[in-house]
Design a protein around this nucleic acid. Structure first.
Lengths: 189, 189
DNA sequence: GTCTATAGGAAGATAGAC
DNA sequence: GTCTATCTTCCTATAGAC
């Protein structure tokens, strides 16, 4: 039995995640990551022997798991499609801090990392998300082709509204997107 | 009269721009920028005494000017709203290489540069673009509030479709967005 | 598991010849 | 205006004590 870590894993991931979401992969230095977690660089290397790349990968995997558990599972879960989608909206609002925090899927797909270690994982998360959304819409009676198109469009608007929110310095575009999302997904259903 | 530069300014900006669009600000190293332009690092410093930050700023300003001249001016220009928007779509398709090149407005708003030198400029470009789009729609008889909302939505989908295209490794989302854009902007007008 | 200290290298930036 | 050579700083990563 090893000794207790001074920072719990979940909290550690949250803090690392915050850095990558704020500045992206390349701009995140070990000094920043150490500062954010309260651990020294050498301690981070003890926990992540492959360094920064491993931290980013685990952060991405953790976020993917969180998404799966807190967004996609509820989407598939019980309750009417309307309720499930309202639930997703609330969780997304929290996850993105009302539009003030960027998406890892965008922040980690830049950089010389393209064609690198994150590419495949990012693609999988996007596709799982679109598939889950798509099948709720199918449950709501939307035909498959339309459901798929709307799910993809929601993904596009989620990403785009976060980009614009950051670009113009206000979370308004993201908030408005979230507000209109249920209607947009379910209209005519 | 100084001697001729070995690379014309316009070409120089295009090549620097390509690097920033591919990898973002932080990941762009002077070695990459030198390689891309065919100039040595010291030569880049002769042209850009303030180094990488100045390069990125001038690239952004140049892109803003290009946008103004090639997208926003035509939007305001003669021709029916439908023609002007079709024209914009063609130019955007070229500018983003059919969805294979990212947008500087997204790539440069990440990084520790937030609250930095690009923030204000990026905001201005976003707002000018939305304003120009908005007024074409007004010309087409769309009421002001709706026009503004649709213009902002187009901006969101442009950015989001580029993010998703990169994320899933195919330009399809961007292409579909462009294809549907005229109808989406002008529906009911 | 965490730390101090440091190695090793890459990045941004400059000096000065041509 | 462009180059080679170099400086300095910062970053990633490791060694080894506690």
């Amino acid at each position: 039995m090893g000794r207790k870590p001074s920072v719990e894993d979940e909290e550690l991931m949250l803090r690392l995640s915050a850095v990558f979401r704020d500045v992206g992969y390349e701009a995140a230095t070990l000094a920043m990551l150490a500062e954010a977690t309260g651990l020294k660089k050498a301690s981070l290397y003890h926990r992540f022997p492959q360094g920064k790349e491993q931290m980013a990968r685990e952060v991405l995997e953790t976020a993917g798991a969180w998404l799966d558990e807190n967004v996609l599972a509820p989407l598939r879960g019980p309750g009417s499609p309307v309720e499930r989608i309202d639930d997703m909206v609330r969780r997304l609002d929290e996850f993105y801090s009302g539009g003030r925090q960027a998406c890892l899927l965008n922040m980690l797909s830049s950089g010389r990392i393209a064609e690198g270690p994150f590419t495949e994982l990012i693609k999988q998360v996007f596709e799982a998300w679109i598939a889950a959304l798509s099948s709720v819409l199918a449950d709501a009676g939307v035909d498959r082709r339309t459901a798929r198109a709307r799910a993809e469009r929601a993904m596009i608007m989620l990403q785009g509204s976060l980009v614009l929110s950051r670009g113009i310095g206000t979370p308004r575009p993201f908030r408005e997107f979230l507000k209109g999302l249920p209607e947009e997904l379910l209209k005519g259903a």
